Simulated assay, not measured.
Amino acid sequence: MNESQHSPSPQVQWVTITDDHAGQRIDNFLITFLKGVPKSLIYRLLRKGEVRVNKKRIKPEYKLADGDQLRIAPIRVAEPKPDALPSANLDKVKSLEKHIVYEDKVMLVLNKPSGIAVHGGSGLNFGVIEALRALRPEERNLELVHRIDRATSGLLMIAKKRSALKHLQDQLRQKTMRKQYLCLVKGRWPAKRRAIQAPLLKRELNTGERAVSVSPEGKPSETRFRIIESFSGATLMEASPVTGRTHQIRVHTQYAGHPIACDERYGDDYFDGQMQKQGLDRLFLHAFRLTFTHPVEETTMQLEAPLEPKLQTLLGKLRNNRD
């Protein structure tokens, strides 16, 4: 490999895939492996054949196998800023420590506050995953198992090992992991409506944000619902997504004519105004229960995160105002 004597030019990288990364898509592997390299550049490298597996061109969806030999062409990107990872001393980062509801050697589960994104991007300096990497510098393989919207609070799983990530994501794909949410919706939800099956189409806006709508061209999507408590003009619901589409619960409730309280994108202005008068200043959607198989112990685990006090207070006011 020739290299200029004067400038530290980027070099070809050779990587041998081990069993820990077997089964992972090449694009997802590179996004993690080439930290700081923009996704657009990673896909361009794949498209141009500048990343090869066993000397062959591959597509982004190629799944890695144990023993695969990767050749990654020299990549020149801007030097990462020294503050690319948030400081572990920042109050917002440190506060995440007290939101960890479960942790062991292979995973941790966080009760994510509303208003914090799960990862940086779209003008955000950092999200939950960057904050946890700053708090746990010794954990080199922290990865999100799944995502929840920035405005949504509740249980979020993070894997510490690639094997645990694969195990947990397999449960999501096979629909053996159960995620249950609490949401406050507009109006009186009909008791007979226990599920919504409506295909969802995702599109990206000019701002880089995602917007989702019900469309025959969308992907099959299903959410199951159960009434928890009825109020005057609102219903507290339990929502269990069978599929895991972007903004699924929010769009399905809107489609049913019962949007979630204080949903800036899919909500109802009049209903939101009524809830704001009662003190609500965030989306009333909370991932309160996770049921899954532990990736190592193979035991069934059920974790819960109660509603934060301000949501409990709102429900108390609604009970007092009930007809």
Score class of each variant (00 low, 15 high):
H99Y: 04
D104W: 15
L108P: 10
G123T: 12
N89V: 02
G121N: 01
E138K: 14
K98L: 03
L96F: 15
E97M: 13
G127F: 08
K94I: 00
S114W: 13
R133Y: 06
A88M: 07
E139V: 04
A131I: 11
E103I: 14
V106K: 04
A134I: 08
I129Y: 11
V106N: 08
G121W: 00
L110S: 12
L96P: 11
V128R: 09
V128W: 14
H99F: 00
P86I: 01
A134N: 02
L124H: 13
L135M: 01
V101W: 10
V106D: 08
G123A: 11
A131E: 02
R136E: 04
K92D: 04
L110T: 10
L132D: 07
K92I: 12
Y102S: 07
L108Q: 08
I116L: 15
Y102G: 06
G121L: 01
V118P: 00
L124A: 04
L110M: 14
G121I: 03
V106E: 07
K94P: 00
E103Q: 15
L90P: 01
D91S: 15
V106L: 03
V93G: 14
D104S: 13
K92A: 15
K105L: 09
V118I: 03
V128P: 09
A117L: 05
H119A: 13
G115D: 01
K92H: 08
N125A: 08
A84T: 00
G121E: 00
Y102N: 08
I129M: 13
L110K: 07
A117I: 04
P86A: 04
L110R: 11
I100K: 14
L124D: 05
H119M: 07
V106T: 09
K98Q: 13
P137W: 03
H119D: 06
A88L: 10
L110C: 11
R136G: 01
F126V: 01
R133T: 08
D91H: 15
K92F: 09
K105W: 03
N111Y: 13
E130P: 03
I129L: 15
V118Y: 04
Y102H: 13
V93W: 10
V109W: 08
K112S: 06
V118R: 00
A131N: 06
A88H: 14
V101Q: 10
N111T: 11
V109G: 10
P86M: 04
G120D: 12
M107P: 05
R136H: 14
Y102A: 12
E138Q: 14
L124W: 03
V128A: 11
V128H: 10
L85P: 13
E139H: 09
L135W: 02
H99A: 11
G127V: 06
E138A: 08
A84F: 03
L85K: 13
L124Y: 04
I116H: 09
G115N: 00
L90V: 02
L132W: 13
K98Y: 00
K92R: 15
K98A: 11
P113F: 09
Y102C: 05
A117Q: 05
S122H: 12
V109C: 08
